[in-house]
Design a binder for these strands. Structure first.
Lengths: 207, 207
DNA sequence: ACCGTTAAATTAACGGTGTTCAATAACGAC
DNA sequence: GTCGTTATTGAACACCGTTAATTTAACGGT
């Protein structure tokens, strides 16, 4: 009765999909092995043959969402023809995903405790979208529109987009400020801070 | 045997403090009414006389942390003498709190589901720190170092700091990039994006 | 000083959860 | 068909949030 790797993987995906359905419908506390069992017609202890524990299932669910997120970002990159539009297209895709798939976006980035690096697979999966940002920034640098270290600049964009959409998805942009109002000046700011010697303007220089 | 308002408030704070101790020691899932009872020597149902349910206790814990956070930010504001240094001082206080009190910082801003605005008291408490940012930005505008709408610009700083420290506290700044490396160009970028006509540089102008 | 009322606090209980483990059922090999 | 391996199940444990019933303690009136 040995399970083939294909069957095992199929069962894993089935459990992950069912878990995601529960999560999207009722939040994190709605996903339990019992409910998952009722939804898929298996017993509530079967998941233990495919995942070490519930946290492992959640990590797999997070990985699935991360990969979908990565796919959205990747498509935005190949779609933008001129290098100058890459960053705008990338940012629009990032914002669009967080708006459309708010629950999934939260699942990707939400972490309760400052966890001591369990689930290295999840850490690796989360790296991929960022690496896309690095590629986009590098292309912009190559086009002569930005200067500096691509990873450092990509990090600035990443931090900015993450801050904006994390606050948005948590309903903490409540002062009559919209995402669209903020996105433009924020992107412009990061561009300006890395646009070369004449465009750069640090805090000290201003003050 | 009527409880005086003072006694009731004292008990509430006692429970909140014990809950925070449990949370800081073992994360969110370590705070339960049973453990809280063992830690404080009361029965595990007594908290229901002071809080509607566990979520209400968590909200109160969050409020407590938010107010401590607000206090840290407020002290940074009065400490900085020249208006030009206000934003730097404010940002340093923000970053310092998130580094020192990582768990508390996470407790403040972490929200699982896009909750439908339960606990308006928490929402109000979270507003206060942002209002401090508005004050700081307004002072900088008054000093002639920035232009534009204070709330909009404050939002940009708020988004930036939130993105930076949220990624940091979640251990997602892993590419050899430090908070200090990123803070300076990020602040400079927001400054540049709102430094008046000559300093502003939107994405389109660059491209 | 006693008692009845009222509120505080505890105990008991219910349904649900993650997790473990012994028992069962299904399959391939011979 | 039988055996042995293995996937799957069901029962059980400890813990959780929550509710209801029960006990305990404090207070005012007489």
């Amino acid at each position: 009765m040995q399970l083939t790797p294909g069957e095992e993987q199929a069962m894993r995906r089935r459990l992950v999909d069912a878990g995601l359905a529960l999560y999207r419908a009722g939040g994190l506390e709605a996903v339990s092995f019992r409910r998952l069992a009722d939804a898929t017609g298996i017993s509530h202890t079967l998941p233990y043959r495919y995942f070490a524990d519930k946290d492992a299932l959640l990590a797999a669910m997070r990985c699935t969402c991360v990969r979908a997120f990565e796919q959205v970002l990747r498509e935005s990159v190949v779609a933008a023809a001129p290098a100058a539009a890459h960053i705008r297209s990338f940012a629009a895709a990032y914002v669009g995903y967080a708006r459309r798939c708010t629950a999934d976006y939260l699942l990707i980035f939400t972490t309760e405790q400052p966890s001591p690096a369990r689930y290295p697979e999840l850490l690796a999966a989360r790296q991929a979208p960022f690496e896309l940002a690095v590629v986009v920034v590098q292309a912009t640098i190559d086009a002569g529109l930005l200067v500096g270290n691509a990873r450092l600049v990509a990090h600035q964009f990443w931090v900015t987009l993450h801050g904006l959409m994390t606050l948005y998805t948590a309903n903490q942009l409540v002062h009559g400020c919209t995402v669209d109002e903020l996105l433009e000046p924020l992107l412009g700011g990061v561009m300006a801070a890395n646009a070369g010697a004449h465009g750069s303007q640090s805090v000290e220089e201003v003050s």
